[in-house]
Design a protein around this nucleic acid. Structure first.
Length: 819
DNA sequence: TAATTCGCTAGACCGA
DNA sequence: TCGGTCTAGCGAA
């Protein structure tokens, strides 16, 4: 700790910036990590402020407004609030430079109060940018990057981000996972103790109490209290910087805190006496521990699942671990834990400890896997790790844009009012999708526009600041297919951002080729390009996001209109070129070819005609592919967003089929997958039919395990607010009637059982037969044959010239329903 | 108080 | 009992 005690300059990684009070004023406390590995705290001063646009831009109005703002009074809970001081400044607003007044406050919490008072004197702006974020943006600091700090003791004199992109701090990490006593499904901290704490990272093991264990990784304490305090001692001893959990925000950390209070344990998870602080951040809760970074893998997995980077059916630790890292699952049912604790055998108790440890291992492994991404994203959008790892797509884009606006000397637009949000609701016409003809095809070339929407936005300078400018005539500007005009003279903030992102990403991709894919350099670069990709892909959505500061309906309309224009142009030109278009969705084109050279020649020709930022890439050549028909009344039409391709390497790419959907049973999905594989690899209908017959027989005979009949669905509303009955709702209602608690919005698994099946000939209500998997005793073979396996499979076989109706004629040799 | 639109499908609902 | 319409969920991009 020598460095901080004297004056001078030091280099450190900036980990976090917190709001603190110093002598009655808002100030910043920085968490810094020296290159030696030591973590220190320092203090910086920063005045909270917001901006006000005077009623009129003339000097007289400006001075009058300034005077009024200086004399402002507002009243908050803590009494009277005053303006600290007011400064004049010039900012660019709606493409014009104009005067603004910068109103400084003593406390960050005064800003919202003063802002209301200021509304009488002008139009307030940038009043809702959180204090610590304002600090990072204004000082152009980059969380997780190396900074040079000039200081006097613990006081920062100046701080500057260094241009050392590659380096990132090395954290001392520990994962944490608790098991609780839970006789009533959901544990209650008022009465249910914490039984075990698993951890991995700087140390690895399990803490428990009273019980004896035969393994050597479990340490037994005399009481729950000593166990909790022992764990805090471990955090201190190992000098942990980063504590990671899976859903610790909402479960583990608040539970430990409540429990400690209840049993009188001295729980110091942080670096000082502070308790776990659980704060609402947007829609969710964040649990913070002072002096350490709490990294919660659950919101990370949830975000990546949402944007499509990973694909899991349920966001459990086990499933995420398995999907992302191929880790094994160790099954202990939550409802069994208290039984094992009370009456379990030694073997069961040992197994529980092992399970607890496995969860801690999964948690640290996942953290190591995702941390690089957030370190890089944090640098990029200037958000500390705690925030960036919990941020939504719109928050990432918006924070990046706020920083860009600051650098460009532009005023950030205010967030929309609720009336604005309401008026932004009507949808904007989206992408073009071509209807394919159903069938089995050979030799399909797939061409993709690389980053279609970002490249269109760049090429045509699309955003709210460039729309309908008054500096370009129609002849000078970019005119969209619907006639929207975009400036050609000044680059917009969003096109500029995307141009930088895409250029940087291309540079990184090139750089990555120099390294081995297992090297740390490669991984850091990969994380960086990944972060850039997330940002670029979210930007179009942000343009049309109703709560966006930089919303542009016209910009969104123009982007998709140009998208439709370019992709349809490719289809038309392909036809003329002698390549038959088969299918197209948004940015992709599927062409039937005879020679690959011709495809490459075509691609070259298109690329020569495109704007510089746009590019048509060859995604691949596929020897065989299947498109199926839509299940529609009347005419037979090919289905969109549903196809399967087999690559030259034998790898199969499947989109849209039931088998990729979690709301279909495993038995139907697996059977469909096998049929698709047979058709793609061998093209043998006979073989596929034989396979299906076997499955149907197994179902009839009850040989299929009930687990393979589970259907997963999320109830996205509260159970009472549904207009219509459904099987999933039926399962929940039945369970609640039995006294089983089912949380709102949960993804539930249910089975269609024989129970509740009506013998009458009237139309069977499936929801009466549906039961949660936990309560299901059997499955209804008729349902799984006729409503799961056969529809999934016949769609494919029927589309490939196999006469579907003949399949259903009972008695025929090949009939699938001949049983 | 979670980026967008396009598209498929099952099952419930409802009127003839 | 049949067939059209609507609600709801999930996936493609």
């Amino acid at each position: 700790m020598k460095n901080k005690d004297r004056n001078g300059t030091l280099k450190a990684f900036l980990l976090d910036a917190e709001h603190v009070l110093v002598q009655g004023e808002s100030a910043i406390r920085l968490m810094l990590k020296l290159e030696s590995g030591t973590t220190i705290r320092m203090y910086d001063s920063f005045e909270p402020y917001f901006l006000v646009q005077p009623q009129a831009p003339d000097e007289k109005s400006l001075q009058e407004c300034k005077k009024s703002l200086e004399g402002m009074r507002a009243f908050g809970k803590a009494g009277e609030v005053k303006t600290k001081r007011v400064e004049e400044t010039t900012l660019s607003f709606r493409n014009k430079k104009m005067p603004f007044l910068k109103v400084f406050a003593f406390l960050a919490s005064d800003v919202p109060l003063l802002r209301h008072a200021a509304e009488k004197h002008g139009v307030p702006f940038e009043f809702d940018i959180p204090y610590t974020r304002r600090y990072l943006l204004d000082k152009r600091l980059r969380p997780n990057a190396l900074h040079e700090i000039e200081h006097e003791g613990l006081r920062v004199k100046s701080i500057k981000a260094l241009d050392s992109q590659g380096e990132t701090p090395k954290f001392r990490m520990l994962s944490l996972d608790i098991e609780t006593y839970n006789p009533d499904a959901m544990p209650n901290a008022e009465k249910d103790p914490v039984l075990m704490i698993g951890y991995d990272g700087e140390a690895k093991g399990v803490y428990s109490y009273k019980k004896k264990f035969s393994n050597d990784f479990t340490k037994t304490f005399a009481s729950e209290k000593e166990m909790l305090e022992g764990f805090c001692a471990l955090l201190r001893e190992k000098k942990i910087d980063l504590l990671c959990t899976y859903n610790g925000d909402q479960f583990d950390l608040p539970y430990l805190q409540k429990r400690a209070k209840r049993i009188g344990a001295d729980l110091r998870l942080g670096r000082d006496k502070g308790e776990v602080k659980t704060k609402r951040l947007g829609l969710r809760e964040v649990s913070k521990v002072s002096g350490r970074i709490h990294y919660d893998v659950f919101p990370v997995a949830s975000f990546l699942n949402f944007i499509g980077t990973i694909k899991v059916e349920r966001l459990t630790l086990e499933e995420v671990y398995f999907t992302v890292l191929g880790g094994k699952k160790l099954g202990v049912k939550k409802q069994d834990i208290h039984k094992i604790w009370d009456t379990g055998s030694q073997k069961e108790l040992d197994f529980l400890a092992e399970y607890c440890l496995t969860d801690a291992i999964a948690c640290i492994d996942l953290t190591k896997n995702f941390l690089h991404l957030h370190l890089e994203l944090g640098k990029l959008v200037q958000m500390p790790l705690v925030e960036v790892s919990r941020a939504t797509a719109s928050q990432l884009v918006e924070t990046y844009l706020l920083s860009k606006a600051f650098v460009r000397g532009e005023l950030a637009p205010n967030k929309p009012s609720s009336a604005d949000i309401y008026s932004r609701q009507s949808p904007v016409e989206g992408a073009f999708v071509k209807t394919p003809d159903a069938g089995l095809y050979e030799n399909i070339a797939v061409l993709d526009f690389r980053s279609l929407y970002p490249s269109i936005i760049i090429s045509h300078n699309i955003d709210v600041t460039t729309f309908d400018c008054d500096c370009c005539t129609k002849a000078e500007a970019f005119i969209s297919p619907q006639g929207h005009k975009f400036c050609k003279k000044r680059k917009g903030i969003i096109p500029e951002m995307l141009e930088e992102i895409l250029a940087e990403r291309a540079k990184i991709k090139k750089e990555m080729k120099k390294f081995d894919s297992s090297s740390s350099e490669y991984k850091a670069l990969d994380a960086r390009q990944w972060g850039l990709k997330i940002l670029a892909n979210s930007t179009y959505g942000y343009l049309l996001y109703a709560r966006s500061r930089w919303y542009s309906r016209e910009g969104g309309e123009a982007t998709t209109a140009w998208g439709r224009h370019y992709v349809q142009d490719v289809l038309k030109k392909a036809e003329e070129f002698g390549l038959k278009p088969l299918y197209s969705d948004t940015d992709s084109t599927f062409l039937l070819y005879e020679s690959k050279e011709k495809v490459l020649e075509f691609q070259k020709q298109i690329n020569a005609s495109l704007p510089e930022a746009m590019q048509l890439e060859l995604e691949g050549f596929y020897p065989r592919g299947i498109f199926v028909s839509k299940k529609a009344k009347g005419e037979e039409k090919g289905a969109k967003k549903k196809y399967a391709l087999i690559g030259e390497d034998g790898k199969i790419k499947i989109r849209g089929f039931e088998l990729v959907r979690r709301d279909w049973s495993k038995i139907a999905r697996e059977t469909q997958r096998k049929v698709l594989e047979i058709m793609l690899r061998e093209g043998s209908v006979e073989k596929a039919v034989t396979l299906v017959k076997k499955v149907v027989e197994d179902l009839k005979e009850g040989r299929v395990p009930i687990e393979e009949c589970v259907i997963y669905t999320q109830l996205r509303k509260s159970a009472s607010s549904y207009e219509i009955q459904s099987p999933e709702l039926g399962a929940v209602q039945h369970a609640r009637k039995q006294g089983v608690r089912v949380p709102e919005n949960a993804i539930i698994g249910f089975v269609i059982t024989k129970e509740g099946k009506e013998s009458s000939k009237s139309k069977q209500k499936v929801y009466l037969q549906s039961r949660l998997i936990e309560l299901a005793k059997d499955y209804d073979p008729d349902y799984y044959v006729n409503h799961q396996v056969l529809p999934a499979v016949l769609r494919i076989l029927g589309s490939l010239g196999f006469d579907e109706d003949s399949l259903k004629n009972k008695g025929k040799q090949t009939g699938l329903e001949s049983w």
